[in-house]
Structures are given as C-alpha cells and as structure tokens.
Design a protein around this nucleic acid. Structure first.
Lengths: 239, 239
DNA sequence: GCAATCAACTTGTAATGACAAGTTTACTCA
DNA sequence: TGAGTAAACTTGTCATTACAAGTTGATTGC
C-alpha cells in the first residue's frame, strides 16, 4: 500500500485484495480474517482505513464482524434473487441437472408472452429468443423461454447453450453482468404445450415466473418466462 | 447528543433520528440532508460519527451520497426481495389491501411447518406465532403465518398488526431491520383449511412460499410461510 | 449578454490517539 | 482437578486534524 500516488484509494485496494482472497478460497467460510491491527501492519495503513475496507466486506455479506472475536468469513451467496432448483427431500446429486435446448437462439419479432414494458429501441432491434428444458434425472422439471434484445450481440445465435449458463456466456463474451431485476410469480393449472414438455396432466399446479434482468450494460434488459413443475422440486434463492 | 453516559452510541442515535425524519417525510426523496459539517454542529458530534451514521443510511438505501453535492434522500424501496401483491391487469387501488389478523401473536412452541433449520438458542427461547389474512376488496388473497423467536421482544404480543406492517413494528420498536434472507417457492393444489381461508376449491393451484428473514440483530432470524391465491393477483418483487 | 474563472461549498480519504467492551486463553488458587 | 480470575487479545466508539476532489454559484472579464 505504498503507492499513495496511485489513484485507487487504499481502503479500496485492501477491500479488493481481501475480497479476491475470500472468493479464491484463501480464507474459507468460518475462518477469521487477520485482526484489524495485523492488517494495518501488513498493508501499512491505519485502522480507519482497514475498518472501511472491512465495512464494505460486511455490506457485501462476505464477512461478519464480532466484537472481541474478529471478522468471520461467510459462505458465498449464490446470487441475488436468482432462484435455483432444489429437491424437496435432499440436494441434487451432482450432474443430475441436464439442460436441453428446445429452440436454439433465433432472431424473431418481440411477442407479448411476458408482460414487462419494452422500450422503443428494444422493439426496433428485434429479439433473440431461445427456449430450454431442464431435466433432473431424465424428468423434465423446468421450461424456460429467454428473450434478449438483438443489440450488439455478435455471433450470439451460433453459440451453444447446452450446458453452459446463459449468464456465463453473457459475462465472458459480451461483458454483460446481471445486476438486478424484477420478477412476477404465480401458480396456474398446467395446460397446452407446457403439459407435453413437462409431462404433466392438465390442471396440475404449475409455477410460473416472469423475469426482467437488468444488466451492467446501460438500458440492456433481457427477459425470461419460466414454467416449473414443483411436484418434487421447488425453487430456492437468497434475497 | 450530550448524554454520553447513555449506552446508545452517538452514531446510532443520529442514525435513528435521521432515519425517522426521512421515514416521517421531514426530508422528501430528492432533498438534501444537512451537510456533514452542519450535522456535526447541530448534534455536537464529530465528522467520523456523522459519517458512520450516514454510511448506515446509505446501506439501508435511504440516502445516496454524492461527492461535492451532499446526501440525497432516496425514494423508499419496496424492500429487497420482498414480494408484494399486484393485480394482473392494473395496480391496486389505494387502500384496497386489507390485513386481517387470524391468530394474534402468541407464544408457542416451534413447530416444523416450515423447513429451515432452527438453532438451539431459538428453539429454547420459544416462538411467537401470528397469522394474518390479506384481502383485496373483501376477497382473501394471501394467508401468512409468521414465526419469530421469543428473544428480547418486550410487549410484542400486545401490539396491533391490523394495518401496520410487521417490518415497521420491528424497526420502530425493536430496531430490527431485515437485511436479507432466503426463500423457497412452489405451486401446490389447495387443500384443507387454506381452502376455507382463501375461499378456494380443493385442487386449485396455490402459490406457496417459505421465507427466512435475516435481520440486523445478530443471529436473529424470523420465518414466514405464505399461501397465495394467484387467480387474479400475482406476487412481484425486485431482486 | 455570455463564458470562463474562482471561491465557497460539499463529500472522500487518511493518519493518530485514546478508551470501552466483548472474547479467549492461560494462569492461579482453592 | 476444578473453578475463578486476570491478562491479552479482539472489535466498537469517538475526537481531532489535514488535505484531496467534485459541485455549485457568484464574480469577473470579454
């Protein structure tokens, strides 16, 4: 922390260092970080600086502080508001979740099977639509249709989404991160093609979600519509 | 801020004062709070103390700070991950949402009608349980059972929860803020007493949520189980 | 009248010192 | 051996000082 002329504040440098170390597993959940005094010495900064860095880690939920004890590393959160599938009885066996592409990405016109407002720019750019089915042990559990505005996403339709996450692809190739969004949730009786895809009888309770994802790219949102058979599994997520 | 012998830290007193003023509308969204220097003079504290109070308001999302300008009061958030009821066609008319207490708060033993792990301390302290029915225009839409550990909540069972929010009560009287949590969601066919409460026919699709709320009070969680008739309304929320 | 500049604000960063309060560990004494 | 205590930790609180950096508005000069 000697390069004071560096434009990055010291507390931010320390914050980033500790954050990377936690995320890379240098400190495991339950571990204690070095004490504030120790961090002062190691990084050659004063305690207010260390405390500001730690305070930001607390805000991020990466650590919890306990008076008299220290800074306790917390278990990583899976992602804000992102729901994942969990079994009602036990956690999913590794590799049991299969993703099958029903409709590969294709440029189409926007349709209104989700009820979020679309901006004029998005409307004119057109829509990349894809739909995927997720199965747990050969049993279809979730059907998802994703709509992205066709804005500056070169070669998107050529990419494979079999097992890779859409989020990873957007992050890796297009530097787009999901930063938030909104969702609507309700239960409805199964009907039509969803019955066939999820192999459900008509009238069975079905969980339906419509999501708008906000991203780090300004004014770039994308949209998902999900149908989930929750007879044996449910959706779970932090908030 | 003169009573230093008071056990409440000065930055916390200032935080609570400002928070109350914001929530009571003394400062409107978009307004600027008094400058840090001004707050120092008014409350007879130093700038680090003021800055800590403001920092907590930033974490709460009640203000945003802008260098060179000041502390800008933000519009009240609906609550992170907190789902609210919305109509499928239009937003709810003001005052249309009624809350009816089915079971007033009562100290009981913990039961396992929600599947989150309870700590030993929580188990021994016992449980305050209450259940409320929410109606939109005399139509019951949502039934919610809330379970709180009976730890340091004086006079809780005597409080009224007819129209006031549980969150407001916890914040105002016990200084407990919800900072996050996790939830499980699934759809199921209506059955039993829920049918009667929500006036549904058996077998109708019903939305079920189980939530664990983490709070600003260390190790203090509380739990909710919700059943929602989503024939005409759905749940909505940011993430 | 208009634009550039500067002064007077604002918050951000940082060092230093001191004491309070909670936790853990080691030691002492019964 | 055991329990109690004290010391050595930890983080929490708070005052003080100084300067950096961004914003705003008034002033100045054209």
């Amino acid at each position: 922390m000697k390069d004071v002329q560096n434009s990055i504040p010291q507390h931010k440098q320390l914050y980033q260092t500790l954050k990377a170390q936690i995320q890379n597993g240098v400190y495991q959940p339950g571990d204690l970080l070095p004490s504030e005094h120790a961090l002062c010495k190691v990084f050659s900064v004063t305690r207010p600086t260390v405390r500001q860095a730690l305070s930001n880690l607390v805000t991020d939920g990466l650590i919890k502080k306990q008076r008299g004890k220290g800074s306790i590393v917390q278990a990583a959160k899976t992602g804000i508001g992102i729901l994942s599938i969990k079994g009602t009885t036990a956690s999913l066996p590794a590799g049991a979740l299969e993703t099958r592409v029903v409709h590969p990405p294709q440029v189409v016109k926007w349709q209104r099977d989700f009820d979020f407002e679309i901006s004029e720019a998005e409307m004119q750019a057109g829509c990349i639509r894809m739909s995927r089915l997720r199965l747990i042990g050969q049993v279809p559990v979730l059907y998802e249709t994703t709509n992205l505005p066709n804005i500056n996403l070169p070669r998107f339709c050529n990419r494979s989404f079999d097992n890779k996450s859409l989020f990873n692809t957007l992050s890796k190739y297009y530097d787009i991160e999901v930063v938030g969004g909104e969702q609507k949730i309700w239960a409805l009786p199964a009907s039509g093609e969803i019955c066939q895809l999820l192999k459900l009888e008509a009238g069975q309770p079905l969980l339906h979600l419509q999501k708008r994802y906000e991203t780090s790219r300004p004014f770039f949102n994308f949209y998902s519509s999900l149908w989930c058979n929750t007879e044996q599994y449910f959706l779970q997520g932090p908030f």
